[in-house]
Amino acid sequence: MLIGYARVSSTGQSLDVQQEALAAAGCDKVFAEKRTGTTTAGREALEIALDFVREGDVLVVTRLDRLARSSLDLQGIVARLNAKGVGFRCLQQGAVDTTTPMGKLVLGVLAAIAEFETDLRKERQREGIDAAKAKGVYKGRPVSVEGDAVRELHGQGVGPSEIARRLNIGRSSVYRAIREEAG
């Protein structure tokens, strides 16, 4: 059985092209999600797909970067598939097919390239942020809550966990605001 997996990084992107390609390739079932590919954490559809596949199945993606952006994650996913007797195939990188020795080799090379591209993208982003900061344009993420609200609740004897819940912020933000007050 061919099982498809489709992924895009943001909610503004469409899964349609991938889902159509996977259906055209003969996938009987397609799992899809809108999550970052830089980690496997929080990718529920991927986890469900990996649990769903059975011995003799083949997991199919349109492009290698739809499955993983790091060679470590890719190797981990492929190892899970291999342990279950499941193959892996990539439509746009047709040589990637773990049911063949050459496909396994190509997979390793392409995984290294995908990770390299991710590192380059991060580096360019960092350079852009640094340049914007030097010009005084980039100020970081906007403040999500005013410290005054945290300090006022803290002054009333409300605990950090309750403050975080009431203001819908992380406890670390609460502790940071309290430290600023004390500092």
Rank of each mutant, 00 (worst) to 15 (best):
residue 1 M to F: 01
residue 4 G to R: 02
residue 6 A to M: 04
residue 7 R to P: 01
residue 8 V to L: 05
residue 10 S to A: 07
residue 11 T to N: 14
residue 11 T to H: 09
residue 14 S to K: 10
residue 18 Q to F: 05
residue 19 Q to V: 06
residue 19 Q to A: 05
residue 21 A to R: 14
residue 22 L to T: 05
residue 23 A to S: 13
residue 25 A to L: 03
residue 25 A to W: 04
residue 26 G to Q: 06
residue 28 D to C: 12
residue 32 A to D: 13
residue 37 G to V: 14
residue 39 T to D: 09
residue 39 T to G: 13
residue 40 T to G: 03
residue 42 G to L: 00
residue 44 E to K: 15
residue 44 E to D: 15
residue 47 E to T: 13
residue 48 I to P: 00
residue 49 A to Y: 06
residue 49 A to E: 02
residue 50 L to A: 07
residue 51 D to M: 07
residue 52 F to R: 10
residue 58 V to K: 13
residue 63 R to Q: 13
residue 66 R to M: 08
residue 66 R to F: 05
residue 68 A to K: 07
residue 70 S to R: 15
residue 71 S to M: 12
residue 72 L to H: 09
residue 72 L to R: 15
residue 75 Q to A: 07
residue 75 Q to F: 13
residue 77 I to T: 08
residue 78 V to H: 12
residue 80 R to G: 14
residue 82 N to F: 01
residue 84 K to C: 06
residue 86 V to I: 04
residue 86 V to R: 11
residue 87 G to Q: 04
residue 87 G to A: 13
residue 90 C to D: 03
residue 92 Q to K: 12
residue 92 Q to R: 12
residue 93 Q to K: 06
residue 95 A to C: 00
residue 97 D to I: 00
residue 101 P to L: 07
residue 101 P to H: 09
residue 103 G to Y: 09
residue 103 G to H: 04
residue 107 L to A: 12
residue 108 G to C: 01
residue 109 V to T: 10
residue 110 L to I: 07
residue 112 A to H: 03
residue 112 A to I: 06
residue 113 I to N: 01
residue 117 E to S: 08
residue 118 T to L: 15
residue 118 T to C: 15
residue 119 D to I: 04
residue 124 R to K: 06
residue 128 G to I: 03
residue 136 G to E: 14
residue 142 P to L: 11
residue 143 V to A: 14
residue 149 A to K: 12
residue 149 A to D: 02
residue 150 V to P: 11
residue 150 V to I: 15
residue 155 G to K: 01
residue 155 G to H: 05
residue 156 Q to H: 09
residue 157 G to L: 13
residue 159 G to S: 09
residue 160 P to T: 14
residue 161 S to C: 03
residue 163 I to Q: 08
residue 167 L to M: 08
residue 168 N to V: 11
residue 170 G to P: 02
residue 171 R to Y: 03
residue 171 R to L: 10
residue 177 A to Y: 05
residue 179 R to F: 01
residue 180 E to F: 06
residue 182 A to M: 12
